[in-house]
Amino acid sequence: MKSTVTLAVLLITTGANAQTAASWGFNSTLSGSPGSNISATAASLGSSIVSNAFNGSTEFYGQDGWPTGAVDLNAYLQFSVSPSSGYTLVLNNVAMTIRRSNTGSPSGAGPNNWTLRSSLDGYTADLATNSMTFNYATFTVSLPAAFQNLTGAVSFRLYGFNTTINSGGNSRLVFDNISITGQAVSGVLAEQSITLTARPTTGAVNLRWQSLGISAGADYTLQRSFDGTNFSAIDRQPATDASNYQYSDISLPASGKVFYRVLAEQQAGVSVISSTSVVNIGQQAAATAIRSVAASAGAIRTLLHLAEGGTYRAERLVYRWQARLPSDDQRAGR
């Protein structure tokens, strides 16, 4: 492993005991079933989707209008939740059991890919994206810090895109069940956070995390994923009076992305989870480097080649140079 890009993370405060904030079963109705002190809107399709129907009273589909290329901002399924007055929403994740149509020859028609976005940023950033087939699969999307302590409504839009239609097939995105894990709590939660940093070394990734507002008696679980969706525990540590923790991961692939996050489970039943840090394994050292440095008019300018998009911090750079004195031959005019 020669270089990487590491994403710093912020806090997530999650609800306890994996409660269901709301669910949509699509059993002959688009209405949602909310949890205590939560309201849920009926699911709806965007204006680009031509038609829709229930299939056998156990699933629902939107047909035609799914784009063959990139995301169409009007081709989606939308569902929303909001807290009752005096309550705060604490949302952990969204789980979606979906597929494309199994019609056509060979079987399979409709969107090959999906992405989930939310109203918190005007549906601009992907919370998660993945591929799908004509067989049902359940995708679970962990929600970041912005979904903690919500005092108002939030809407999600599930977009289907990259559509293909085999001979005789129907362009459909089919929904069997969608659920949001979380709860409504009275008032506003106290601030709690975990900040995770992942730094690569030769043959390992060194992980450090800092906690805020998490009391002794909690347990930290460091989790790792190779696809950004399915995480498994690789280390557990008890919380102490210290706020800094570390672990070195040496079980790494030869190349590819590795995703990390930390979960703190507290005795009071409230959990806290960090956002996800992403590390690229096996990139060339030259992938992130200073390409040139130029000094003029009292300023220094440099061009950087960065291996991957992200947020970077420029530390202060100190350059030393000395004037080149003329040689004896130069002074003599030779």
Results as ranks from 00 to 15, higher is better:
residue 203 G to S: 09
residue 172 R to S: 02
residue 139 F to Y: 13
residue 187 G to V: 13
residue 179 S to W: 01
residue 152 G to R: 13
residue 216 A to P: 11
residue 177 N to M: 10
residue 201 T to A: 14
residue 185 V to P: 01
residue 161 F to K: 08
residue 206 N to P: 00
residue 207 L to T: 05
residue 182 G to P: 09
residue 135 N to M: 11
residue 163 T to S: 10
residue 151 T to K: 12
residue 182 G to T: 13
residue 136 Y to K: 11
residue 140 T to F: 06
residue 156 F to K: 01
residue 189 L to T: 04
residue 130 N to T: 14
residue 149 N to M: 08
residue 160 G to Y: 01
residue 212 L to N: 15
residue 213 G to F: 06
residue 126 D to G: 07
residue 176 D to P: 01
residue 175 F to E: 02
residue 172 R to C: 03
residue 160 G to E: 00
residue 201 T to W: 09
residue 168 G to D: 03
residue 128 A to E: 02
residue 151 T to M: 12
residue 134 F to A: 10
residue 197 T to R: 12
residue 210 Q to R: 07
residue 131 S to Y: 07
residue 132 M to W: 02
residue 148 Q to Y: 15
residue 208 R to N: 12
residue 173 L to G: 03
residue 165 I to E: 11
residue 190 A to Y: 04
residue 155 S to F: 10
residue 150 L to P: 04
residue 211 S to E: 10
residue 142 S to R: 08
residue 148 Q to R: 15
residue 132 M to K: 06
residue 169 G to M: 09
residue 167 S to E: 15
residue 195 T to R: 13
residue 183 Q to G: 04
residue 208 R to G: 09
residue 207 L to I: 07
residue 200 P to H: 04
residue 171 S to C: 09
residue 145 A to S: 15
residue 172 R to H: 00
residue 129 T to N: 01
residue 124 T to W: 03
residue 144 P to L: 10
residue 180 I to G: 00
residue 143 L to A: 03
residue 171 S to Q: 11
residue 182 G to E: 11
residue 213 G to Y: 06
residue 153 A to K: 14
residue 201 T to R: 13
residue 209 W to I: 02
residue 142 S to Y: 05
residue 202 T to S: 12
residue 189 L to E: 04
residue 136 Y to F: 14
residue 125 A to W: 02
residue 205 V to C: 04
residue 179 S to I: 05
residue 157 R to P: 08
residue 202 T to A: 13
residue 138 T to P: 03
residue 202 T to N: 13
residue 136 Y to V: 11
residue 131 S to D: 08
residue 188 V to N: 08
residue 147 F to V: 08
residue 175 F to S: 03
residue 133 T to I: 05
residue 207 L to E: 05
residue 172 R to P: 02
residue 158 L to T: 04
residue 172 R to Q: 06
residue 210 Q to M: 05
residue 166 N to V: 09
residue 180 I to K: 02
residue 163 T to L: 03
residue 155 S to W: 09
residue 197 T to L: 10
residue 165 I to T: 15
residue 196 L to D: 09
residue 195 T to H: 12
residue 153 A to V: 12
residue 212 L to D: 09
residue 180 I to M: 05
residue 173 L to S: 00
residue 183 Q to F: 10
residue 127 L to E: 03
residue 133 T to R: 07
residue 146 A to C: 08
residue 175 F to P: 01
residue 191 E to R: 15
residue 136 Y to W: 10
residue 157 R to I: 14
residue 175 F to V: 08
residue 211 S to G: 10
residue 164 T to S: 10
residue 176 D to K: 13
residue 177 N to A: 11
residue 133 T to E: 01
residue 153 A to G: 15
residue 156 F to L: 04
residue 146 A to N: 14
residue 164 T to C: 01
residue 165 I to V: 15
residue 126 D to F: 06
residue 171 S to W: 05
residue 131 S to T: 12
residue 209 W to Y: 05
residue 196 L to E: 10
residue 166 N to Y: 07
residue 150 L to T: 06
residue 195 T to F: 06
residue 146 A to R: 13
residue 177 N to C: 04
residue 215 S to L: 12
residue 153 A to Q: 14
residue 141 V to M: 09
residue 132 M to E: 04
residue 200 P to W: 00
residue 159 Y to E: 08
residue 187 G to I: 09
residue 176 D to N: 11
residue 137 A to P: 00
residue 205 V to S: 05
